[in-house]
Computed example of a mutant assay.
Amino acid sequence: MKTVLITAGGAGIGRAMGEAFAAQGYQVWVTDVDEDALAECPDGWHRHACDVTDEKALHTVISGMPGLDVLCANAGTAGPTARIEDITLEEWRSCVSVNLEGAFLAAKHATPKMKTAGQGAIIVTSSTAGLYGYPNRAPYSSAKWAVIGLMKTLAMELGPFGIRANAICPGAVEGARMETVLAREAEAKGMTRDAVYHGYARGTSMQRFVEVTDIANMAVFLGSDAARLVSGQVIAVDGHTENPDPKL
């Protein structure tokens, strides 16, 4: 049985990834800082309360796995929504740590198991914020650009060992995290929540938000043998974003 590890797998995109991989017969391991969310995950999943910035805890989880075919380095945090001059160094470091260092640590400790097996797939969750500049989102956008650089380096470094690496860039995803972003952007820009929401939707050629299942389905594909020669790629699942800064 193939095995997948999903960081921040208790809810949202991570939970959808777990369900999608489980449907394909994978043994699912998830980590999350939200113990309540973990408790709501299916009983058959291996659930671990773990902060991805805690290297010792993450290493303990991964070293206890019987094998690892797919890593979904999915953990992230939205960070502050503010002008650059109003962002504190603590806010910057906190956002970059979760989004970038969390992906680095997961990949670092997953790699030895994959090298031993002679195969594996690493999937990092970036964002369309890693493809465009996003006003008022400096830490988040910077970190999401950086994880793409990390992914491309992993693809080159690990390819000779049969390990692939790719990045998924979700656009505006329906759910609790995006609602927080919408509220913050509305306050920062003096707009209503609905105006910001529709601005995001109008910024895509599909004129709609993404569902978590759209991201999960792409992760399953990238982890599968059908994508055996897909590596080093940045794949946006965003309805074709052209205007990442919603305006009326």
Rank of each mutant, 00 (worst) to 15 (best):
T116W: 02
G118I: 04
Q119D: 05
A121G: 03
A121P: 05
I122F: 01
I123Y: 01
T125K: 00
T125Y: 06
T125G: 06
T125R: 02
T125W: 03
S126G: 06
S126D: 04
S127P: 11
T128P: 04
A129L: 10
A129C: 09
A129T: 10
G130Q: 04
G130A: 11
L131R: 12
L131G: 09
G133F: 10
G133E: 12
G133R: 04
Y134C: 14
Y134Q: 13
N136C: 11
N136Q: 11
R137V: 12
R137L: 14
P139M: 13
P139V: 10
P139W: 06
Y140M: 13
Y140E: 12
Y140T: 07
S142V: 15
S142H: 07
K144L: 13
W145E: 07
W145V: 05
W145C: 13
A146L: 11
V147S: 07
V147K: 03
V147G: 07
I148H: 03
G149I: 02
G149A: 10
L150H: 08
L150M: 14
M151R: 03
K152F: 00
K152T: 00
T153L: 14
M156P: 00
E157K: 00
L158D: 00
L158F: 00
P160Y: 04
P160G: 07
F161K: 01
F161R: 01
G162H: 06
I163L: 02
I163Q: 00
I163V: 12
I163C: 01
R164K: 15
R164A: 06
R164I: 00
N166K: 02
N166P: 10
A167P: 10
A167D: 04
I168E: 02
C169I: 02
C169H: 15
C169P: 04
P170Q: 04
P170K: 10
P170G: 08
G171D: 11
G171T: 07
G171M: 14
A172W: 13
V173I: 15
V173R: 05
V173L: 12
E174I: 07
E174G: 08
G175A: 11
A176P: 12
R177D: 11
M178D: 11
M178K: 12
E179L: 10
E179W: 03
T180R: 15
T180C: 06
T180S: 13
L182K: 15
L182Q: 12
L182W: 11
A183W: 09
A183P: 13
R184T: 10
R184Q: 15
A188Q: 15
A188S: 10
K189G: 09
G190Y: 08
M191N: 04
M191Q: 10
M191P: 02
T192D: 11
T192S: 15
T192L: 02
T192F: 06
D194K: 08
A195T: 13
V196D: 07
V196T: 09
V196S: 06
Y197C: 11
H198F: 14
H198R: 08
Y200Q: 07
R202W: 07
G203W: 02
G203P: 03
G203F: 07
S205E: 10
S205I: 05
S205K: 04
M206Y: 07
Q207P: 03
Q207Y: 03
Q207T: 05
R208G: 13
R208M: 08
R208P: 11
F209R: 02
F209E: 09
F209C: 04
